[in-house]
Design a protein around this nucleic acid. Structure first.
Length: 259
DNA sequence: ATGGTCGTTCCACGA
């Protein structure tokens, strides 16, 4: 079961590039972030015609997450529990029925800038809510994959210029600690556990020729429950996508599970 | 050393 996460930065601007990547990469499951679309405006037929089931959790203009799956989905749930007043569309879950059933969570974690401020407070509060949801999911003792745009640079080795991110919400010690609190529950960060070297990124800013200078950061992650980590076969980042016409500023990150 | 770019929606904001 190949599962990918991809922040597409707007479905209207990206559907052609997304279709091209799906045809080549052939993921069984694609967890999308920043669809920037309400559910009714998402061009679901384009993907259904390619054999994908489509589940969206959108909102107008900003945020929005989706699941594309060519395997059956069960028990779709929308929204991160823990705050009924939170109207931002950043979390979607479903159970994918492959050789094994895998619970997948697609997430778009708040950016949190500027620091300090209400957006940073929201980020940290959101991460605590995510930690509680992760704890619940672990109790099921089943394969769980939580994947998406975490807006977290886990370590300095995950940035080409770590000093440039020192005061940024993506790299602040409190942000990194909140990320580790989730990992420390017993999750495995799939890419880092298989690739120990620095210099692998998933995002390059549109500005200042970041791509051309390889000034990137690694902020898109897949976290595996112990039962999912047992099934891990392979990891990858589809870096070359970033060099194409009309790219997202993120590229797909994926895993292959024996499931 | 600095500024720089997109996407969506509407003429600004978020990243």
């Amino acid at each position: 079961m190949k599962i990918a996460t991809f922040n597409i930065n707007g479905i209207k601007a990206r559907f052609e590039a997304l279709q091209a990547w799906l045809r080549e990469a052939e993921p069984d499951v694609a967890l999308l972030q920043e669809i920037k679309s309400v559910d009714e405006a998402f061009p679901r037929e384009l993907f259904e015609d390619m054999g994908y089931r489509v589940e969206t959790h959108g909102q107008k203009s900003f945020n929005g997450v989706a699941i594309l799956s060519r395997l059956p989905l069960e028990d779709v749930a929308r929204g991160l529990p823990g705050d009924d007043r939170d109207e931002q569309a950043r979390w979607i879950e479903a159970t994918v029925i492959g050789d094994r059933a895998v619970r997948v969570c697609g997430l778009y974690l708040p950016n949190g800038n500027p620091v300090p401020g209400p957006k940073y407070d929201y980020k940290l509060a959101w991460m605590e809510r995510m930690r509680l949801r992760a704890l619940d999911l672990l109790a099921g003792e089943e394969p769980v994959v939580m994947a998406g745009d975490y807006n977290i640079i886990p370590q300095d080795m995950d940035a080409a210029k770590p000093e440039a991110w020192r005061e940024d919400a993506l790299a602040r010690p409190e942000s990194r600690a909140a990320f580790r609190r989730i990992l420390n529950l017993g999750f495995t960060e799939a890419f880092r556990t298989r690739v120990p070297e620095a210099g692998h990124y998933s995002f390059w800013d549109y500005q200042a020729g970041a791509w051309q200078r390889n000034n990137g950061i690694r902020i898109d992650h897949l976290l595996l429950s112990p039962q999912a980590a047992d099934l891990l076969r392979e990891v990858g980042i589809d870096k070359e996508i970033r060099g194409r016409e009309k790219p997202s500023d993120h590229v797909p990150v994926w895993i292959d599970l024996d499931a």
